[in-house]
Lab assay of single mutants.
Amino acid sequence: KQVQVGDEKYTFDTPEEARKFAEKVAKEKNLKVTEKNGNFHVE
């Protein structure tokens, strides 16, 4: 599963790991997490 933050992409083995990372980054940057096709976008 992938997490996209701006132009950066991070790959994780499980959706749970990806979601945790996305939520942590979103909180730090005051952004929101959206899920698209099983991948997460922080925007």
Rank of each mutant, 00 (worst) to 15 (best):
N37E: 10
E28N: 07
E17Q: 10
V42K: 03
G38F: 01
E23I: 00
Q2H: 14
D13H: 06
G38R: 00
V5M: 08
D13Q: 09
K24H: 11
D7M: 09
V33C: 13
F12A: 02
T34M: 11
V42C: 04
G38W: 00
E35T: 11
V42D: 05
K36A: 09
N39E: 12
K32V: 14
Q2W: 15
R19I: 08
V5E: 03
K29Q: 12
G6W: 06
T14N: 10
Q2G: 08
T34R: 10
R19A: 07
T14M: 03
V25I: 14
E17I: 03
K1G: 13
F21Y: 07
E17G: 05
G6K: 04
T11G: 06
V33Y: 06
K36N: 11
V33I: 12
V5D: 04
E28K: 06
V33R: 01
G6H: 07
R19M: 09
E8M: 13
E23H: 04
F12N: 01
K1M: 12
K32H: 12
R19T: 04
Q4F: 15
Y10E: 01
A18W: 00
R19L: 12
T34C: 11
E28M: 03
T14P: 00
K27A: 13
E43C: 12
N37Y: 03
H41K: 07
K24P: 01
V42S: 03
E16I: 05
E23S: 00
N39K: 08
N37I: 01
E17V: 01
H41S: 08
F40V: 06
K1F: 15
T11N: 10
E23Q: 04
N30P: 02
D7G: 10
F21Q: 05
N37L: 07
K29T: 09
E43R: 07
Y10R: 03
N37G: 09
A22I: 04
D7V: 07
K9I: 15
Q2R: 10
V25W: 02
D13S: 10
P15F: 13
K36W: 08
G6R: 05
E16D: 11
E28Q: 08
K20N: 12
F21P: 05
F21D: 05
E17A: 10
N30G: 15
V3D: 01
K20E: 14
H41D: 08
R19D: 06
G6S: 05
K36Y: 09
F21W: 07
D13Y: 03
A18S: 02
K29C: 15
K1N: 15
D7R: 09
F40W: 11
E16F: 03
Y10G: 01
P15M: 14
E35F: 09
T14H: 03
A26V: 01
K27V: 09
N37P: 00
F12T: 01
V5K: 02
K1P: 14
D7S: 10
K20L: 11
L31A: 12
E28R: 05
K24E: 13
K9R: 13
E23A: 01
T11Q: 11
D13P: 10
E23T: 00
H41W: 15
E43G: 14
K9L: 15
E35Y: 09
E17M: 07
R19W: 05
K1R: 14
E16R: 01
G6T: 02
N39W: 13
P15N: 11
N30Y: 06
G6F: 10
T11Y: 15
G38P: 04
F40I: 10
Y10P: 03
L31P: 02
H41G: 06
K24R: 08
F12D: 02
V33F: 09
E35A: 07
T14V: 02
E28G: 07
T14R: 00
K36V: 14
F40G: 05
K29R: 14
T14L: 04
E8L: 14
V3W: 00
K20W: 07
E16A: 08
K9M: 14
N30F: 07
F40D: 06
Q2S: 14
P15K: 12
A26Q: 03
F40N: 04
Q2E: 12
H41L: 14
A26K: 02
N39I: 15
E23K: 00
V3Y: 00
N39Y: 10
T11M: 12
L31Q: 09
E28Y: 00
D7E: 12
H41R: 06
V42M: 04
D13R: 02
E23L: 00
G6D: 07
K27G: 09
Q4I: 15
T11H: 13
E28D: 12
D13M: 07
E43A: 10
K24C: 15
K27E: 10
F12E: 02
A22Q: 04
K1S: 15
V25H: 03
Q4W: 15
F40P: 06
N30D: 10
N30A: 08
E28C: 13
V33E: 03
F12Y: 02
L31V: 08
T11E: 11
N37Q: 04
F21I: 05
K29P: 04
N39M: 13
N30W: 05
V5W: 11
E8G: 04
H41F: 15
D7K: 12
V42W: 02
K24V: 08
F21M: 06
P15E: 15
V5G: 02
H41N: 08
E23D: 10
E8W: 11
F21S: 05
Y10C: 09
E43P: 04
E8D: 12
V5Q: 02
E8C: 15
T11W: 15
N39F: 08
V33T: 03
A26N: 03
V33D: 03
Q4T: 14
L31M: 15
A26R: 00
D13A: 11
D13C: 13
E16M: 06
F40L: 13
K36R: 14
E35K: 09
R19H: 08
A26C: 08
F21C: 10
N30K: 08
F12R: 00
K32F: 08
V25R: 00
K20F: 07
K9Y: 14
E8V: 13
V25D: 02
T34D: 06
E8R: 13
K36E: 11
E8F: 13
T11C: 15
V5P: 01
K24W: 07
R19F: 08
F21L: 06
